[in-house]
Amino acid sequence: MTRTSLSRCSKLTAVLVVCALLIAAVAPAAAVSVQQTDVPEEGEVDSQVTATVTLTQLYDTYETWQIAGQTALQDVTWTVTFLNQAGNQVRQESYDGQNFSGATVDIDEGTSEVRVRVTGTVPAVEAYSYDPQQSFQLYALDQTREGGSSNELANVSATHYTADSREAREAMESAREAIDAAGNPDTAEESFASAVDAYEAGNFDNAASLAERAETEANQAESSQQRNQLILYGVAGLVVLALVAGGVVLFLRSRGDGYDKLG
């Protein structure tokens, strides 16, 4: 490479470094911090659940903005509490419905932390799925600005179930563990696949029965494998003993032959 080419490369590198520094200087700072302080991972259909989220680092990008939220919960109440640096309440707002918007965060109010609590009823399951397990949107929160700009802060899902679906799923999970431990025998895998089909069709009694059959088949296969292993070990032991015995006999005979020749 010539000296002129090296000079051009050096200048290009310098320009790229300057551009990178300029981009870093004008890029927005870190987003709002979202802490899930009390968020359930699952809920039974028709039961009431509550999720609480804490927002901090509120003004890294904007000094005034709004919170919007949505959920698949039913009979919903949102409670938005604004706190100052001392942890004292500045104000509190409540909203009803699966969607809300307009909860304003303003630096001039002295708000340093916002707690969003959503309470509602777990919705019915529209379609059952074994893997992944069926879920619903617990809550989603957005940072919005006048003019239509929006930034997603959080989008959290939770699994939901009925008493019957949970019982079937527990039987299936037990069967899955037994099948894996047994080395995935074909008969047990077939029964388990049928259990999955029944579960996803909402036939939970049948799913549980098929799962129990799959677990029994897996346990039988594992017992058979262990029995065959013991038999193999026994045969191998007998072979070893026979070889040892044969070696001893040959050794004694060789010693005997030696004594005869000396005599």
Results as ranks from 00 to 15, higher is better:
Q36T: 10
S7A: 15
A221K: 00
V80D: 00
F136R: 06
R227M: 13
A198Q: 09
C9N: 11
M1C: 08
G102Y: 06
I107V: 10
T162S: 13
A208P: 01
A124L: 08
N155K: 09
T216F: 08
C19Y: 12
A211F: 03
T2Y: 06
Q85D: 15
Y59I: 05
N84K: 02
R253E: 13
S94C: 05
V114W: 03
R169Y: 12
L238C: 14
R213D: 15
N184W: 08
L16M: 14
R91A: 07
A25R: 11
T2K: 08
K11I: 13
I23N: 04
Q220F: 04
L243Y: 07
E177L: 12
L210P: 02
T71V: 04
G148I: 01
D131N: 12
A201W: 05
D180I: 08
S165H: 01
A214W: 01
L16V: 13
A195Q: 02
D38A: 14
G147Q: 03
Q70A: 11
L262W: 13
G263K: 10
A14S: 10
F204T: 04
A175Q: 00
G43R: 01
L241K: 07
Q48C: 04
A211I: 02
L22K: 00
S149D: 14
M1A: 15
G147F: 05
L21T: 09
A30Q: 11
G147H: 04
Y59S: 02
Q66P: 03
D205I: 07
L241Q: 08
A29Q: 13
D106K: 09
T61Q: 15
G247T: 06
Q74Y: 05
E41D: 13
